[in-house]
Design a protein around this nucleic acid. Structure first.
Length: 252
DNA sequence: GCGACAG
DNA sequence: ATCTTGTCGC
């Protein structure tokens, strides 16, 4: 982890990031047109495989995607995920070369020990609203408002996450009838909790994750496997929706 | 010392 | 995250 200095140093950076992000938390006044999804999978031979997807909010269709491959500069340390994955995600986002209005990141936003999860880091750096959607809890106490068996429609809000002061950090959402555990939806930056929840829920269509992140997860894992099989080379990676043929279809 | 611990 | 066979359920 020498590439960044000490852990204490990184923690200080996050405290500053959190302070800045706090001022950007506000209701989302507009309906996004294009939403980006960000996620990273891992290849044993080439390291991280970051994917940025572009989804049309209205039609819910995958418009395009881009990829970036490289060895992470830092090991995985709970709470410091942003320093490990954000750099590669930025690279993927740049090659996407398309404008967008909001970004959904695989991981937490303010539901983080210092209120600076990877979604917060990215949203602040990009200057655009960001939402964090994680599959597991990192920080906070869970408050359940209803049991999974009490859900009538999906996605279903089963509770929320609060900090030591009772402040809401994220919502616990059970995406579909098959899902057991909930996903955690929190604001990263430039958007408040309720707006983040609304946008995230509108993009969950039978999937466990919102479409942008759902696609990024599938594509990144697919590419990581192809790389490890040797049927695909990093030099041939770029971007393209054309080669995703039928694989994108039956994914719900 | 023990439990928690995004990806 | 990734490593992995079978198994339970729709």
């Amino acid at each position: 982890m020498r590439a960044y200095g000490s852990v204490e140093k990184l923690i200080d950076v996050q405290k500053r990031i959190a302070k800045r992000a706090l001022d950007t938390i506000k209701p989302l006044r507009v309906t996004p047109k294009h939403v980006v999804g960000l996620d990273v999978a891992y290849s044993r031979t080439y390291g991280g495989v970051a994917v940025a997807t572009l989804v049309d909010f209205e039609s819910k269709q995958l418009v395009d995607y881009s990829v970036a491959v490289g060895e992470p500069r830092l090991e995985y340390i709970p709470g410091l995920l942003a320093f490990r994955e954000a750099p590669l995600l930025y690279t993927a986002l740049q090659s996407l070369g398309h404008d967008f209005d909001l970004v959904v990141v695989d991981g937490h936003g303010i539901s983080h020990p210092r209120r600076a999860g990877i979604a917060t880091h990215i949203g602040l750096a990009l200057g655009k609203p960001s939402i964090g959607v994680a599959k597991k809890k990192l920080y906070g106490d869970e408050v359940h408002v209803r049991g999974v068996s009490q859900c009538i429609e999906y996605p279903c809000i089963v509770g929320y996450l609060v900090d030591e002061n009772g402040y809401k950090l994220a919502y616990l959402v059970v995406s579909n009838k098959r899902s057991r555990a909930p996903i955690y939806v929190s604001p990263g930056a430039g958007i408040d909790l309720d707006s983040a929840l609304r946008v995230a829920m509108e993009m969950i269509l039978g999937t466990k994750l919102p479409l942008p992140t759902h696609y990024a997860d599938r594509i990144s894992k697919h590419i990581a496997r192809q790389l490890d099989r040797g049927v695909l080379k990093p030099s041939q990676l770029k971007k393209g929706i054309k080669r995703l043929d039928g694989f994108i279809a039956g994914q719900a």
